[in-house]
Every structure is written in structure tokens, then in C-alpha cells.
Design a protein around this nucleic acid. Structure first.
Lengths: 171, 171
DNA sequence: GTCTATAATTTGATAGAC
DNA sequence: GTCTATCAAATTATAGAC
């Protein structure tokens, strides 16, 4: 994967988290990176393919982060998930990519919708296994729902304290 | 407000809940209602104005539903909110309008973003007052976040049991 | 209130030169 | 890997007739 392709993934991720799948164009990416629209198509022939690649990378990176934190000695897995969501919002004030695309699922190309479905399935499985015991799946779903919803509300109100208050009872 | 305008609000609400603000066009609405694109502009001069009207009506209707349920004798306000969200999803399999637009806030015209911010502020205030007591605001935020996130995940995975499991502990 | 017609712009995508 | 040039289609929006 070339450096330009990496930068395109980064930019596309940023745009999707800000305004959704239909909230940016190839020309936006091209102008921000200093190339032309046609050159973007050289790296990613279709917009759907680009978005699917962004989603896959996002999921992989998220789960790698969780695994690294767990290996680093942090034992409370819910705290790991909570800080992963919170730091992403605090850094750039944007939504979770999975949350944005999940919300507009009905308008997505099928290959993108499938990646988002996988995002939630993989996170649910991972968190459930790390929690362990009876009812761990239900608990994982509740934690993920609260984190996604809290992020969404913080985004909509522009107030990170919304996230902190909504998720305080999780840890 | 004419019958055509009402139908346009209904259709626009449906499209937004399915695919977001940029997921439909005036021509979509026109063709589904059996008129021409220009006639839509007669009722709603701009797309931003239409979406803002949809959001305002959605918020008003939601809070009216909650008040009616409370007046009808249902005492558990969290159950009222939970069933309001659940029935909306079960009926047509779509997201909460506030949730969809909240997620893509960064790409919205300012007048629409303001209506969505109001949606969350008004629901938080209403639920907080109905819960009452110390920590009721924090509790209201947690409940709303869980419901929105659970709906988002049910939408992304296409599985309503995701909503049920994620929100089971609320009631 | 609806229509035809059209403007002005943007979009996703392709062909072919360098 | 990037470019110029371009296409075909879609978009939001307006003017003016009926």
C-alpha cells in the first residue's frame, strides 16, 4: 500500500466520521491531498471500495488497540473500551466511524454495509469474551450501545461532558 | 399546512431515517408523491428547511407520545422511552431520526444541526424531570445513550434482538 | 399548486497521454 | 502514479406559464 493510498484512507475516514458516506466526494480528497480526482480512482477504483477499506482498517485498528491495552496490564476491559471511544472523540470531536455508517446503513453500498455489520459483530464478540461468564454477551451489547449512543449525543450537542455523564455508570 | 406538504414531511422523514440527510433528493420525494421536482420547492423552498421542519415535528411528536403514555397511567418512564424507540424500529426497521442526523452532524446545514441539538436537549430535560431526584440528569443521559446506541446497532446488524438485549437492563 | 424548462454545480467514473 | 479532458448523470434551485 502506497503512501498516497494511506493518506486517502486517512482523509476518507476523517470525512466519513464528520459527515457520513454521502458527505464527501473524491474531489474533496483529491484537492486536500494535492492531486486530481482521476488519480484517486487509480488507488481506489470506486467510492464503495474505498469506504469498505476504511471500515475494515478501522475495525482492525480498534481491536488491535484493545488487545494492546489488555496486554499492557489494564484489567478492566470496559474501561479500555470506554477510553478508546472517549479519546477518539476528544481528539477531533468526531463520531465513531462504525456509528456514523451504522446509522445510515440503508443508503450504503452493500459492501460497505457488510463491513459495518462486521464491525459490530467483531466488537461484540471481543468484548463479550473479555468480560466472560454468564450474560457476558448481553453485557457487551449494553456497554457498546451506551458508548455509541453517548458518542452520538456528545457529537450532536457538541459537549463531551454528555459522554462522560452518560457513561459514568459503566465503570 | 396542506396535505401535500404533510406527505412531503412524511416521505422526507422516512428517507432521512433510512439513509441520512444526503441520502435522498427532492426528485425522490417528487416521484414518490407523483409530482415534479419544482413543485416540492413550492412547499419547501430549500432542502435544509424541509429537514429542519421534519426534525422539529419529530421532536414534538416524540414528546407528545411520552406525555400521553404518562397520562395514560404508565408509571415507569424508562419503559415508556424504551418502547417508543423499540416500536419505531420494529415498525419499519429504521433508525431514530435524531440519531441518524446526530451522527452526521458535521455535514448538516446549520439550521438542521440546531434542531437535532434541540432534540437531544429536550428529550434529556423531559426524561430527567420525569425521573426526578438526585442524579436524574446523569441517569437520563445514560438511558438515552443506551437506547440510541442499541437502535444504531440493531440497524447495523439488522437484528432487533440486539436492541432487546442491549436495553434489557434498563427496565 | 403544478407544470415545463433550464440554470449552475457536483458527482462518480473512464480514456488515454506522459 | 499523475495528469488533462471529458462523460453521463444527478443535484439544488429558479423563472415563468397554466
Amino acid at each position: 500500500m502506497s503512501g498516497t493510498a494511506q493518506r486517502l484512507l486517512d482523509l476518507a475516514e476523517d470525512h466519513i466520521r464528520n459527515a457520513g458516506y454521502n458527505g464527501f466526494s473524491f474531489r474533496d480528497l483529491a484537492s486536500e491531498i494535492g492531486i486530481k480526482n482521476a488519480s484517486v480512482h487509480h488507488h481506489f477504483p470506486t467510492k464503495a471500495g474505498l469506504a469498505a477499506a476504511v471500515a475494515r482498517r478501522y475495525t482492525d485498528r480498534f481491536l488491535t488497540f484493545v488487545a494492546d491495552q489488555a496486554d499492557s496490564g489494564e484489567r478492566d476491559v470496559v474501561s479500555i473500551y470506554r477510553s478508546a471511544f472517549r479519546e477518539a472523540f476528544a481528539r477531533d470531536g468526531r463520531m465513531c466511524l462504525g456509528g456514523v455508517l451504522g446509522a445510515e446503513t440503508g443508503g450504503l453500498p452493500i459492501e460497505v454495509a457488510e463491513e459495518i455489520r462486521d464491525f459490530f459483530h467483531r466488537l461484540t464478540d471481543d468484548l463479550s469474551k473479555r468480560i466472560g461468564g454468564r450474560g457476558s454477551k448481553k453485557q457487551a451489547l449494553r456497554v457498546l450501545a451506551t458508548l455509541e449512543g453517548a458518542m452520538l449525543m456528545a457529537r450532536a450537542t457538541g459537549d463531551i461532558s454528555t459522554f462522560d455523564q452518560a457513561t459514568a455508570a459503566l465503570v
